[in-house]
Design a protein around this nucleic acid. Structure first.
Length: 209
DNA sequence: AACTGGTACAACCGCATTACG
DNA sequence: CCGTAATGCGGTTGTACCAGT
């Protein structure tokens, strides 16, 4: 399972992976604050990060950027996501462009963990209703295929957008923000990657650009 | 009080596309 | 025009936390 080193140069054999530490975050924030975004590979090297440019880019775009809004997707955003997804399918980055401050990764995760669950439930409801003549499969199949409109339609049938079921609404209106970095208490020493963005940015400012 | 299952999120991987020499 | 490198995108996986038993 060894991945081939895509940015292969024998010397960067030691490339860090896994969760980012506060220190790495600070370095990246600091560097971009001073030099701006650039070629990510060289940025990673210049900043002294033992990360791939790809990893740096992802971390910056999905987490460190100052304009990233995190947690608490509002019902309005939820509706928008569903509308746009019905229109464009899994074009997460395209959808994200219409939700300022939201990242494609966040929207994708949100869709998969919360909305898709309800689609499945809707599918099950339908297949139960239609007994077993095989048509029930079409919703899920078509979702994987060209577009997810059918599945969404099914979902809207079972969970109408304007009148969500109580449990569905609860999910939407009160997204659990447990263990969300921005909502976390001060980090303990073991969890150095859990710092709020406010902390990081104020530290960055203190470090003095 | 301990264990198990489910949920949510962050990060990685591979592929496709675009830009550049 | 071709080859290579960089970037962007979508899918998937790993991990932490919470709730229920």
């Amino acid at each position: 399972m060894d991945k081939k080193p895509c940015n292969s140069s024998p010397q960067d054999a030691e490339v860090r992976k896994g969760p980012w530490t506060m220190e790495e975050d600070l370095i990246l924030i600091n560097y971009i604050a001073n030099h701006g975004e650039g070629v990510w590979n060289s940025l990673a090297k210049s900043a002294g990060l033992k990360r791939t440019g790809k990893s740096c880019r992802l971390r910056w775009l999905n987490y460190l950027r100052p304009d990233v809004r995190r947690g608490n997707i509002t019902p309005e955003e939820q509706l928008l996501i569903m509308e746009l997804h019905a229109k464009w399918g899994n074009r997460w980055s395209k959808i994200a462009k219409h939700l300022p401050g939201r990242t494609d990764n966040e929207i994708k995760n949100y869709w998969r963990t919360r909305i898709q669950k309800h689609i499945k439930q809707a599918d099950q409801t339908i297949s139960q209703g239609q007994s077993s003549d095989g048509t029930a499969d079409q919703a899920s199949t078509s979702q994987v295929g060209s577009s997810s409109t059918t599945a969404l339609d099914a979902m809207e049938t079972t969970y109408p957008l304007c009148a969500p079921t109580a449990s569905y609404q609860a999910t939407l209106v009160q997204p659990p923000d447990h263990h969300h970095p921005t909502a976390l208490p001060p980090p303990d020493s073991n969890q150095e990657s859990y710092w709020s963005m406010e902390d990081l940015w104020s530290m960055q400012l203190l470090n003095g650009e």
